[in-house]
Amino acid sequence: MNLRLWSASCILLSVCAATRASLAQGDGPRMYWKTLTNSNAVTLMPMHMTGNSNPLDPAHVQPPDSSFEANVAMLGYTRTLDFFGRSGMASVLLPVGNLKGEVSGLPLDQQDSATGFGDVTLQLDVNVCGAPAMNDLEALQRYEPRFTLDLMGSLALPVGEYDSENILNIGQNRWYGRFGIPMMVTLGPWVPGERTTIELLPAVWLFGENDDYLGQSLSTDPLFQIEGHVTRDFTKSFWGSIDAAWFSGAKSEIGGASGSSLNNIGVGFTLGYQVTDNLLITLGYFSTINDNDPGDFRGDEFRLNFTFGWNSLIEGMKRLSEEH
């Protein structure tokens, strides 16, 4: 019946992208917005990353005097859930692509590269405040969030391609994961074209041990991360975000030799455009800013995100609308 309604619904739907546990940029803006239960989203996120640390290693272990370049894509699938009456979201992510790097000062090749699949990450996010499960269009229509708070956990499985002789790997050869508390505050009305949000994601990463990192053992302390976004609709289908992240910790020990802790800040921006009711495209750039000292982590990242979302209820309404 109401084109406006399902159009709005689809906007909500297709921002439900697979979260992307990548690097300093973090998950990105509007990643924990809620929508109809049993919505689906497939994500393809090509990224180009450069820096002095393997960008697919969340611990950002830094070989000395290194530089890396990655051209990878994150493939993802997300489904929204009714988790005991609360909005929930389950995701699976798989990085795939190519890494190239140069390293000096180690008894290894000066240049190296890796190509293939990375570690599969599973993630579950459950709202605890402000977003009951939306099991029908009526609930979605009445959803006007003011403050939401979720609990989120993810786990990366060490199944990605890994060569212990190689300093560059897409897989990390260890279990790792994180716990986070995604939060969102809405400023002003929840009206498509007018929405403004402040989003915050404090999280802690925990790392298992890689017992074969260049023949040695690699262990890493927890990494604390706070990711923040201020997002704003420019029109009903076009929005932008200013992004920032701070991460601290992740002191690594390789074969008994300790490295230094990270204490970095990165900033960036994201633009999002709803191309159709089902397709959202975002473009983002992110860069570390306090990275002048030789030991600082440096990273720059461009990324595109194509998210295709659908929900059977909304697709059904569209069919009805077209037939009548």
């Binding site: 406006r4 709005a8 009206v191 498509p192 007018e194």
Partner: peptide, 10 residues
């Protein structure tokens, strides 16, 4: 024409 249902009344 601020006619989104969430804008009604505003």
């Amino acid at each position: 024409s601020r006619n989104d249902p969430n804008a009604w009344g505003r």
